[in-house]
Simulated scan of single mutants.
Amino acid sequence: MPGEVVRGRVVSIALLIMGALQPVVVGSLPFAVVAAGVAVGLSLWLRSLDAAEAKDAIILVALLYIVSLVPGIGLWPSGPAIAIGVTALISWRAGRLARWREWLRVGRFDGQAWATIGAVAAVSVVALLLWQTVFDGQLPTTYSELAGSVAAPVAVAGALGFTVLNGAIEDSIFFGLLLTPMLRYFPPRSAVALTALAFGLAHLHGVPNGIVGVLLAGTWALMLGYLRTRTGGMLATYLAHVVADATIVAMLIPPLLTM
């Protein structure tokens, strides 16, 4: 196996691990310092290679850790949105931004793609309802306290904004910037499976959360990753994601407004 492929695979796996850990240890200064150090090391290791996708992913992951340290704006989804924006700016200055078109596009739609979107959406709704009713699924404390501390119209507006933005940000991170180098150095099925595993682990403290949440989110990510590779773009993945987020909002926000 050529040395470039070996390096690409090692870096891509390291980035998935770092990407999965960041939401779990969000706001941790020691982890942010380690992540920055690892990012510098990986960047130096790839310096002589044409590995634009991996280099941008390194910048993104490091920024996710760093931005999460900033009070007020480091919380999801504002912190990751800033990290993506800064990554795009750096990529543009380095002449790599055009490579983002490989994933940041609508993609090809046909009957099978639409049917898959519908199936993924239906599975998402059923799985989330089971998570709430059988496993007593709830919002993380930070978000439930935030929703309960503001007026109902503000909470509803924030929830709707979350529904629109969360899928775009989460998909851009995992199925855009992190999956793209994986697809360069691994077979598609392996790349999607490993990315889905990272996506699931990232939800340990998310929605859905816990071990059950990890399993649900990881399985769901397999379907989202399939849509990404099947259509060659992000719109199908995003549409399925919006349905799931809308279900989360409809299930978990109304009870908080009556408290």
Results as ranks from 00 to 15, higher is better:
240 A>M: 11
68 S>C: 10
23 P>Q: 11
108 R>G: 01
152 A>I: 14
201 L>K: 01
17 I>N: 02
31 F>L: 14
191 A>G: 12
229 T>V: 15
27 G>I: 07
164 V>S: 05
259 M>K: 13
45 W>N: 07
9 R>D: 07
179 L>S: 01
196 A>W: 04
232 G>D: 10
163 T>K: 01
164 V>C: 05
29 L>A: 08
226 Y>V: 05
245 D>H: 12
216 L>Y: 05
37 G>D: 14
239 L>R: 14
180 T>P: 09
129 L>D: 10
187 P>S: 12
37 G>W: 14
187 P>A: 05
93 R>K: 15
23 P>A: 11
249 V>I: 12
4 E>H: 13
80 P>H: 01
39 A>K: 04
29 L>E: 08
234 M>V: 06
168 A>R: 07
4 E>A: 14
185 Y>K: 00
63 L>S: 09
167 G>V: 06
187 P>R: 05
34 V>L: 15
118 G>H: 07
186 F>H: 02
51 A>C: 09
171 D>H: 07
155 A>N: 13
233 G>S: 04
60 L>W: 05
53 E>T: 09
122 A>W: 12
163 T>R: 05
190 S>P: 07
142 T>P: 01
40 V>S: 02
161 G>N: 12
151 A>E: 15
9 R>L: 04
96 R>A: 15
126 V>D: 08
